[in-house]
């Protein structure tokens, strides 16, 4: 940003052409295949629009929203989504942070270790769902086998983690936590490397304890990274519908349905685009409010140029 004015003046006509042609392909593609479909989907929210019966398409005003807010299937996604995002985020963040502190000092094999714990990130939510369906399988899954071996579960009566109303949602959250921890570990660990060691040494001379150092040096120093990574993760967790899709498909009885998986369900299985777009619009508004409030509350602008 420095010497902004000077550089603006320095771009010759040739430079400006160069800038234009280098940027144009990317901007054009993203405008055409991200923004255009996205924006052109908004009017669908106010239409009856089903891919199964296009001839019945017509404007119906707020009808889709009225239907949504009167049906139990949608209403129960609201508390589910809140739990899904916050419980997952808090657990991922806390465990991830703890592991990052363990990895702060260099040791042999640290790079490999980080490579290994990052495995899940190479895999889509859909495949993670398939992997964990096996783990949770009542009759032939290893988790039940482990619990039986430990004497915690009666072999005659294994737990159907994903089919039981009480355990399905916690199991889905556990899988999500399993997936997300490494992101925090790796980003926070990288940020910790940037904290100057002199700060710790100086405070040690002053007789500061570990806890004091953690809250007065470590956390303030890496705050921008903490704020941004938690915000991004909260949005991604909110959008992590493909895990639900393959793990439980929202079941049993809608207990694991979150807002985004509900929308996906409307598109893929019911072809009800009108209603799905209404959910989509609600999602966008919620994400906008959430991001703004989060950045305001954390007073992010004062520290970074987002």
């Amino acid at each position: 940003m420095r010497s902004n004015k000077k550089n603006l003046a320095r771009n010759t006509k040739r430079d400006r052409l160069f800038i234009f042609f280098m940027l144009a392909p990317g901007i054009l593609l993203v405008a055409l295949f991200c923004y255009y479909p996205f924006l052109s989907g908004i009017p669908y929210a106010f239409k009856r629009y089903s891919l199964l019966n296009l001839s019945r398409t017509k404007w119906i005003g707020l009808k889709n929203f009225e239907t949504l807010f009167t049906e139990k299937e949608f209403l129960q996604t609201i508390p589910n989504t809140i739990k899904w995002v916050f419980i997952s985020l808090i657990l991922q963040f806390t465990i991830g942070f703890m592991l990052a502190l363990f990895l702060k000092n260099k040791f042999r094999g640290r790079g490999i270790y980080q490579g290994v714990i990052f495995f899940p990130w190479a895999v889509s939510g859909f495949l993670i769902g398939i992997l964990w369906r096996w783990i949770y399988n009542a009759a032939y899954g290893p988790l039940n086998a482990l619990l039986i071996a430990l004497g915690l579960v009666n072999p005659a009566n294994p737990i159907g983690f994903l089919s039981n109303l009480d355990t399905a949602f916690p199991s889905a959250i556990a899988t999500n936590v399993w997936y997300g921890i490494a992101f925090f570990t790796i980003t926070i660990q990288a940020a910790l490397q940037g904290v100057p060691t002199e700060l710790y040494e100086a405070s040690e001379v002053d007789g500061a304890g570990k806890v004091y150092q953690f809250f007065k040096i470590t956390v303030p120093y890496i705050r921008p990274v903490l704020i941004l990574s938690t915000l991004l993760r909260s949005i991604w967790i909110f959008n992590f519908a493909d895990l639900i899709y393959s793990l439980t498909r929202g079941g049993p009885g809608g207990t694991t349905e979150i807002m985004t998986s509900y929308m996906l369900n409307l598109i893929i299985f019911q072809s009800n685009i009108g209603k799905a777009s209404a959910v989509g619009l609600i999602i966008i508004v919620l994400l906008l409010i959430w991001s703004t409030v989060y950045l305001k509350l954390s007073r992010f602008e004062e520290e970074g140029d987002f």
Binding site: I19, L23, C34, I273, I283
Partner: peptide, 29 residues
């Protein structure tokens, strides 16, 4: 380079990272 609209281009890209990808599925169809 520094040029007018540079920040807008960066925002234009950053915002896409927050949208659920499947919202555009039907219009794209």
């Amino acid at each position: 380079f520094n040029f007018r609209g540079k920040q807008i281009v960066i925002y234009f890209y950053l915002i896409t990272q927050m949208l659920p990808s499947f919202i555009g599925l039907a219009p794209l169809y």
